[in-house]
Design a protein around this nucleic acid. Structure first.
Length: 583
RNA sequence: GGAGCGGUAGCUCAGUUGGUUAGAGUGCCUGCCUGUCACGCAGGAUGUCGCGGGUUCGAACCCCGUCCGCUCCGCCA
C-alpha cells in the first residue's frame, strides 16, 4: 500500500516517486497551493498540492485527521523553504495523486496539543495515543519488554503462563473476584501476583522461570499505582541471594544501556534496611539527594524542652534533624508550607534553626538552651547559611515526615546531584508488629528467614529475612527474596502470622503438600514494569505508560467500565446486587 | 473513610463586591489568498456555567448536598 514512511523521508529520497499513507496532522490552504502535513508512525512529511493537480478539488475537502494515500515525487525544498523543526524538513512531496482513505469528523482536541486535560484524553484515548509523546512512551515500553524477554531467554529462563482465574488469598491486598457459574456461590480471584505458581514451577523442576504478567490488586490508586499492573516475574532454583541479585542487576544495567543509552555503573551499592531507615527514613531512598537524616536523641535526653526530651527518652520515638546546606534563605512562608507538608504524615510541627551570619536563629532556641543548640549544630556540622529541620515524635512519624521533606526539599531547591542512582536494599526484617500486637510479614509469608526455627520462635520480631529490593531514584522498581523450601518452616511462619493449621491447610495446603515432595532451594524477584518504564521515560504518571489506564476511582473513561450487567446474567450466577441505602 | 485542587463554548482558560446581553484564544463553518509549516486576512455560528436543592428582587459567583477528574493520607503481604 505504501513505499515509504513519512517520517523516514529525507534528502536521500530526492528524485524518488513515493507512495505514503497517514493522517493529516495539519493543512495549510493558500487558495492556490495547499500544504498537508501527513503523519504516520514514524513522523511527519509535507505534501504539496499545486493548483494544476487533477485532485486539487479533492484536496480542498481534506481536513485534519483525514486518512490519506499520497502518490508523488520527493523534491528538495527551495532555499529558505526548509523547516529545521522537521527531520524531513529538507524535502517535500509534490503530490501527483491523492486518495482519501477515510475522512474524519473534527477531532475534539488537536492531536499535538500538549495542554489537553487528562479527562478528555482518556475519554478519547484512541486519539490521544496518536500523540507523539504517547507513541514514544509505548515504544519504549515495547523495547523494555523485548529486552527482558531476550535477556531471560538467553539465560535459560522459560516463559510459562500461570492462571488468571485462581484462588483468593487471605493476606495482602484486596482481591478482584470473579464469580463461578459452575460452582454457584463460589469465586475465583485474579492473582495479586503469580507468587505461589512460580514456586510450584520450581518444585516441578523447571529451575528457571519468567513471565511478563498482569497482576491485580483492588486497592486505591495513586499516580504510580493501577489496579492492574504488569510485572516481570522471575524465579530460579539453586541460586542464592547474591547470584539472583547479580543476574537481575545485569539485566537492569543492560536494559538501561540498550533502551536509553544510560550507564548505571558497574556495581549497584547496597544498603541495609536499618541503615536506610536511619539515614533516609524510608526503605526506598532516592540516592540522588545529598541530604541525610541524623539522629540527635542522645543530645536531648536531659534538656528541659519536653517537645524534644520526651521523644528523645522514648525508644519508640525519635528526634532527628536534616541539615540543608545554604538553606537559611528559605522564607518563613515557605517554612510554613513545609510545616503543613509534614503535617500530612502526622508531624505536629516543624522546628528549625537557621544559621545566620550573626549566629543561630530559631523560635525554639530559647527552649533548647545554648548548649543543646550548639551540640546539635556540631553534630550535623551546620555552617553559616545552612538551615536545620527537626522531627520529634514516634519513629514512624519522624521517618515519614523527614523522608518526604527530604524529597520535597530536593525538588524545590534542585538538590539532585546525579541523574540515576540505583541501590539495593537488603537485610529486611521478616516481620513488622501491628498495632494490635500481631505480626505481619514485610515481604510476603513465603520469604525465608535468616534464622532457624528455634531462634525464630524465640525472637520473631528481630529476625531478618532473605529479601531484597531494587530502588532507582527513590522508586522501588523490584523486589524479591529467597523462599522457604521446607514445609516445617513454612508452617511455623504461617503460625506466627496467626494462621492456624486448619486454615493453613485450607488456604495453602497445596503449597505445604508440594514442599514435602523434594522442593529445591529457590528464590526470585519481580519488577514493576510500569514503574520501570515511568522512570525511563521520565513520566510523572503511571497512566502515561499504559495504553488504556483507569482513573483514580478505577474506572475506564473510554469504555465506561465498570457497568451494571443485565439481571439475566446475574441470575445465571445466582447473584443479587444490593446497593447501600442512602438517606 | 479523610485532606487539598479543579469542573464555564469542541478544546485550553478568564469572568471584578452577587447586577441586567457570560467573554478570550484556538478549533469549526463561509469567503479571499500560489511557499506555508501553530500560514494569513475578513465574516459567522456555537453555552445544561458538572448535577440537585437553598439564600436573594436577582446566582457562573454565596450556602448545603452530590457526581466526575487530579494530587495526597489511610489502604497497597
Amino acid at each position: 500500500m505504501r513505499t515509504h514512511f513519512c517520517g523516514a523521508l529525507n534528502k536521500d529520497n530526492i528524485g524518488q516517486v513515493v507512495e505514503i499513507c497517514g493522517w493529516v496532522n495539519r493543512r495549510r490552504d493558500h487558495g492556490g497551493v495547499i500544504f498537508l502535513d501527513v503523519r504516520d508512525k514514524r513522523g511527519i512529511a509535507q505534501v504539496v498540492i499545486n493548483p494544476n493537480n487533477t485532485d486539487f478539488a479533492l484536496a480542498e475537502r481534506i481536513r485534519n485527521e483525514f486518512v490519506l494515500k499520497v502518490n508523488g515525487s520527493v523534491i528538495a525544498r527551495g532555499q529558505g523553504l526548509t523547516n529545521p523543526k522537521l527531520p524531513s524538513g529538507e524535502i517535500e512531496i509534490i503530490a501527483q495523486h491523492l486518495q482519501i482513505l477515510n475522512p474524519s469528523k473534527p477531532v475534539p482536541f488537536q492531536i499535538d496539543a500538549a495542554d489537553t486535560s487528562e479527562e478528555i484524553r482518556l475519554k478519547y484515548r484512541y486519539l490521544d495515543l496518536r500523540n507523539n509523546a504517547m507513541q514514544k512512551r509505548l515504544k519504549v515500553r515495547s523495547k523494555v519488554t523485548h529486552y527482558m524477554r531476550a535477556f531471560m531467554d538467553k539465560h535459560d529462563f522459560l516463559d510459562i503462563e500461570t492462571p488468571f482465574l485462581t484462588k483468593a488469598t487471605p493476606e495482602g491486598a484486596r482481591d478482584y473476584l470473579v464469580p463461578s457459574r459452575t460452582h454457584l456461590g463460589e469465586f475465583f480471584a485474579l492473582p495479586q501476583s503469580p507468587q505461589l505458581f512460580k514456586q510450584l514451577l520450581m518444585m516441578s523442576g523447571f529451575e528457571r522461570y519468567y513471565q511478563i504478567v498482569r497482576c491485580f490488586r483492588d486497592e486505591d490508586l495513586r499516580a504510580d499505582r493501577q489496579p492492574e499492573f504488569t510485572q516481570l516475574d522471575v524465579e530460579a532454583s539453586f541460586m542464592n541471594e547474591k547470584e539472583i541479585m547479580a543476574l537481575m542487576e545485569m539485566m537492569i544495567r543492560g536494559l538501561f544501556k540498550s533502551v536509553v543509552g544510560v550507564d548505571l555503573g558497574d556495581k549497584f551499592p547496597t544498603i541495609s534496611y536499618a541503615q536506610a531507615m536511619e539515614k533516609y527514613g524510608t526503605d526506598c531512598p532516592d540516592m540522588r539527594i545529598p541530604l541525610e537524616i541524623i539522629s540527635i536523641d542522645e543530645l536531648l535526653t536531659n534538656i528541659e524542652f519536653r517537645v524534644f526530651s520526651e521523644p528523645a527518652q522514648n525508644p519508640k520515638s525519635r528526634v532527628a534533624a536534616i541539615k540543608v546546606p545554604g538553606g537559611a534563605h528559605i522564607s518563613r512562608k515557605q517554612i510554613d508550607n513545609y510545616t503543613k507538608f509534614v503535617g500530612i504524615y502526622g508531624a505536629k510541627g516543624l522546628a528549625y534553626i537557621k544559621i545566620n551570619k550573626d549566629g543561630p536563629a530559631s523560635p525554639i532556641l530559647k527552649f533548647l538552651g545554648a548548649e543543646a543548640s550548639q551540640n546539635i549544630i556540631d553534630k550535623v556540622d551546620a555552617k553559616t547559611g545552612d538551615i536545620i529541620f527537626f522531627g520529634a515524635d514516634k519513629v514512624k512519624i519522624v521517618n515519614e515526615s523527614l523522608a518526604n521533606l527530604r524529597e520535597k526539599l530536593a525538588q524545590d531547591l534542585d538538590l539532585f546531584n546525579q541523574d540515576w542512582a540505583p541501590i539495593w536494599v537488603v537485610d529486611f526484617p521478616l516481620f513488622e508488629v501491628n498495632n494490635n500486637n500481631t505480626l505481619n510479614t514485610i515481604h510476603h509469608p513465603f520469604t525465608a528467614p535468616r534464622v532457624g526455627i528455634d531462634e525464630l520462635e524465640k525472637n520473631p520480631t528481630t529476625a531478618l529475612s532473605h529479601a531484597y529490593d531494587l530502588v532507582i531514584n527513590g522508586s522501588e522498581v523490584g523486589g524479591g527474596s529467597i523462599r522457604i523450601h521446607q514445609a516445617d518452616m513454612q508452617q511455623k511462619i504461617l503460625k506466627l502470622l496467626g494462621i492456624d493449621e486448619t486454615e493453613a491447610q485450607d488456604k495453602f495446603g497445596f503449597l505445604l503438600n508440594a514442599l514435602e515432595y523434594g522442593c529445591p532451594p529457590h528464590g526470585g524477584m519481580a519488577f514493576g514494569l510500569d514503574r520501570l518504564v515511568m522512570l525511563i521515560t521520565n513520566s510523572t504518571s503511571i497512566r502515561d505508560v499504559i495504553a488504556f489506564p483507569k482513573t483514580q476511582t478505577a474506572a475506564c473513561l473510554l469504555t465506561d467500565a465498570p457497568t451494571q450487567v443485565p439481571k439475566k446474567i446475574l441470575r445465571e450466577l445466582n447473584l443479587e446486587v444490593r446497593l447501600p441505602k442512602k438517606d
